[in-house]
Amino acid sequence: METATYATSVLHQDAVERKPFYHYRPGTIAVSLAAPGCSFRCDYCVNFRISQFGRDGAAVWTAKEVDPWAVVERARKLNGCVALSYTEPSLAIELTHDLARVGRAVGVEVIWKTNGFLTPAAVESAAQALAAVNIDVKTVNRRAHRRLTGGDVRPVLDAIEGFRDRDVWVEVSTPMIPGLFDAREIAEAIAEIDPAIPWHLLRYTPAYRMNQLAPTAPQEIADAVAVGRAVGLKYVYVERALGAEGRSTCCPRCRGLLIERGVWSTRENRLDSGRCPYCGCEIEGRW
């Protein structure tokens, strides 16, 4: 017997930057899997045709059983990793563990893009299998978070801390949902855990059931970046709206340009053994 989510609807090869991970093995190809389903019910979800299986009739079960050996072998040939993404990977914990067990023998790591809505026991379990996680923090207002997702935000923040404490590399993403997004509140919550956690700001676009509001203006995104930095976050990123500058990693000490990125790729990585080549500052990440 196995869980239905020991399966995937996709078998994609993406740049790890697209998940997004900017401080985990830049330029790595992620063999990406996703079984239908999510523990949240966000009204803005672009992926609702796969994530909202069980809630929305438009989402149908299209997944097929995964052979962990075949997936890991595919990733190994690419010198890549395996990513569980697009839907909620914590629903596929058994698959995650098997991929990690098979991958460990050949140097293939497993990463998650997750909503972070996990119990401490689930974090403990998943941390044994994962090299990196990107966790969505949509808001830190408990009532608003529950209204949007159906779940409390406290476990999400605890998961960030829990994974970080267990040496899993953590990055955070925030969709800038109008009326919900408060840059200062979220940046402060992340900085309180660790100011070196990279923060990715995702431009809101009207989607699914939240389709009446306007997309986030570029100036609003730039303002949020400034707030994140003012609060003390060392690394704040925007994938598209602010151009190449929004995607670049600069040294938090000397501001030297360290990593230049295209939209979904790394163009140049100037790090020297994880350090700034200009001033020697250690840059947090898994390089």
């Binding site: 672009v46 993403s173 431009r203 676009t205 709206a241």
Partner: peptide, 8 residues
């Protein structure tokens, strides 16, 4: 991640 939103 598709922050351009609607995309293609």
């Amino acid at each position: 991640m598709i922050p351009a939103g609607a995309r293609i």
